[in-house]
Design a protein around this nucleic acid. Structure first.
Lengths: 240, 240
DNA sequence: CGACCCAAACTAGTCAACAAGTTGTCTAGC
DNA sequence: GCTAGACAACTTGTTGACTAGTTTGGGTCG
């Protein structure tokens, strides 16, 4: 029920996903003008389904519709990107904590097994595969935390994050660090340790943000599952 | 820019606000079937603007559209209500903390003055007026915190909260308590005390939830601006 | 009397044509 | 050469007709 929003059936749903795919994969670039009629013709349908899809894409902040003028792919200012990351930091950590009390054993074992398939590092040829696993892990946490309003906004924010990563052509060299961080989160989940799960996830997102902002000069932090309790505020203090 | 979503111009925007008003004021009751064509006829327009409005209302969780069958006003299960309140608890407290560092002096003075107009208690004949002030105060905090993704979801959640209050015909006897709590929040904002603001808002929302759940047998808690630092988790421990 | 079936009414989805507005270009005039 | 104005192309907004599917109520058969 949580992630069903994307599964909207019908022609309009298909078109929504296709346009969103083209935006997130930079087929349509930020600032580019896209037209209802052109896309309708391209996809072989009338303007109505395209309009429906546009309306939803606008609600979700992917495009901007200027009446009688045109529809444009939105770009994100640095301030907006900061807001997205700040929101993820808060929500991911919170939901991870909630999930610690609720995720079922079977699912946790599934991720434990999937993570075991990687050694200490993520091979270069399996990075896309790992990114997909990472995404699935986050989605599983949203589902387990069972808070639809928060999960919905996070689904949008993860899509935006992926978009940002692609736009910045971010290097994927951080994968192996992320692998360890995810294992920390899973450790905490398995231990049913709410605070540790939130703290580990906070660290994971924080490092993701740091890499996205390309401040690679400062090495990523790493905390074990026994890390300090998370501050409610911004940035967890370094462990030592 | 933040609250502009409701100001969408054009016929579709007007219709959106009208239908939403009818839902939140219980003209259309949960479970009731509403039809595009009937509303279009009623409001003297074609089905398209109504469709646009419906689409958005569905995205925001007010209605449910069943293809080729009908459109129904959504009801909220107790689980969904709990999720909404949980989300508000997290987000309101967080944004209040952020606002403590950012809200401008002028706005704070404006609310200080407006609150001073009330004494120790809210007169029975000014309850609606006070509810509006309370709403404006929350909106000002969202704006000051300047995080659009979080503010957007909170705007929806406050609407839902008001809806819930109306559906439960909740008594408004708590107004005077709320008055004190809001003053605590404002105190913390003026002191630029992030943690105190978050804690005071947390208490405010928590008491609002308690009243909405009609567990009126346990007296509402009250903490001053010097309250303990907020836990990241669920419910702040009683002061003593 | 009850269960089943079928048809009529109603629903949202789609489409093509039209309306209203904006934008960019091209030309006439200075 | 440059500016002002009109025009043409293109945009989304709106409309009503049509489609495909569901629901519902009445009628018939067992």
């Amino acid at each position: 029920m949580i992630a069903d929003l994307n599964q909207e059936s019908g022609r309009a749903g298909v078109i929504y996903r296709e346009i969103k795919r083209r935006i997130t994969e930079l087929v349509y670039k930020p600032g580019e003008k896209i037209s209802e009629s052109r896309i309708a013709e391209e996809l072989g349908c009338g303007r109505s389904p395209v309009r429906t899809a546009f309306s939803r894409l606008q609600n979700e902040g992917w495009i901007e519709i200027s009446p009688q003028s045109g529809t444009f792919v939105r770009g994100l200012s640095q301030a907006e990107i900061d807001e997205i990351f700040e929101a993820r930091l808060l929500l991911e950590a919170y939901l991870a904590g909630r999930a610690a009390k609720r995720m079922n054993e079977l699912e946790m074992r599934r991720f434990r097994r999937a993570l075991a398939a990687y050694g200490k590092r993520v091979p270069a040829d399996r990075m896309d595969e790992f990114l997909e696993l990472d995404l699935q892990f986050h989605l599983a946490i949203y589902k387990a935390a069972s808070n639809k309003p928060l999960a919905d906004v996070l689904l949008n924010l993860t899509d935006k994050s992926r978009w940002i990563r692609l736009m910045r052509k971010g290097s994927t060299t951080r994968m192996s660090d992320a692998l360890g961080e995810i294992r920390d989160v899973l450790d905490a989940l398995e231990a049913r340790d709410e605070k540790a799960a939130a703290a580990a996830m906070h660290t994971h997102i924080e490092n993701m943000i740091r890499q996205s902002n390309q401040r690679t000069q400062s090495p990523p932090k790493h905390k074990g599952a026994n890390a300090k309790t998370p501050k409610n505020g911004r940035v967890a203090a370094p462990t030592k």
